[in-house]
């Protein structure tokens, strides 16, 4: 296994980074959406008029998956994957890989916890319709760190692929 890791080419390292970002964000979003959707469907099954107010809450953890996808796409663009066979040294590839880690980890965790936070917000909307606006704020705070990680990953990618 270690031999395989040390023999990986730069492009393979870069692709591993892209895949990690996409997988981390995707998993975080999936679990987050599943968690909040469970509560939202429970509310809607009792009071279908709340569907519209709950939809933004249920969709909110989905952004982490988008950030992971964007990061993976940027890796492909920055290393020139769409323009033919990219040439990257192992060191350059590892740098690209490391650049993807903020999104891979932060989006994984924040997606899940945004879903958990949104369940509390679903409870607020279930009790009082007029609280729907305020209810969006708390899960949005969790989003901040996913946005920071995306900015960091994009900046690092820009710098390391120069």
């Amino acid at each position: 296994m270690m031999d395989f890791v040390w023999q990986m080419s730069g492009v393979e390292w870069a692709l591993l980074g892209a895949v990690s970002a996409a997988i981390g964000g995707g998993i975080g979003s999936s679990i987050g959406i599943a968690a909040v959707s469970g509560a939202a469907t429970g509310v809607v099954s009792e009071d279908s008029s709340k569907f519209g107010r709950l939809l933004p809450l249920a969709a909110m953890p989905g952004t982490q998956g988008i950030y992971g996808f964007i990061t993976a796409l940027l890796v492909f663009i920055f290393i020139g994957l769409f323009e033919g066979d990219p040439a990257l040294t192992a060191t350059e590839g590892i740098r690209v890989f490391l650049s993807c880690l903020p999104v891979a980890f932060v989006c994984l965790v924040s997606g899940i916890y945004q879903g958990v936070t949104a369940i509390g917000s679903v409870g607020m909307v279930a009790r009082r319709d007029e609280e729907a606006g305020k209810a969006l704020i708390f899960p949005a705070l969790v989003e901040t760190y996913a946005v920071f990680s995306l900015i960091l990953s994009v900046l690092m990618l820009t710098i390391v692929t120069g």
Binding site: I31, G38, A39, V43, A126, R127
Partner: peptide, 21 residues
């Protein structure tokens, strides 16, 4: 916490509405 959210999410949603009744 995450496991509980997934396991009881639907029931919690229903209960939050029923509490108002």
């Amino acid at each position: 916490m995450v496991r509980d959210s997934l396991r009881y999410g639907h029931a919690v949603g229903r209960v939050r509405v029923r509490e108002t009744r």
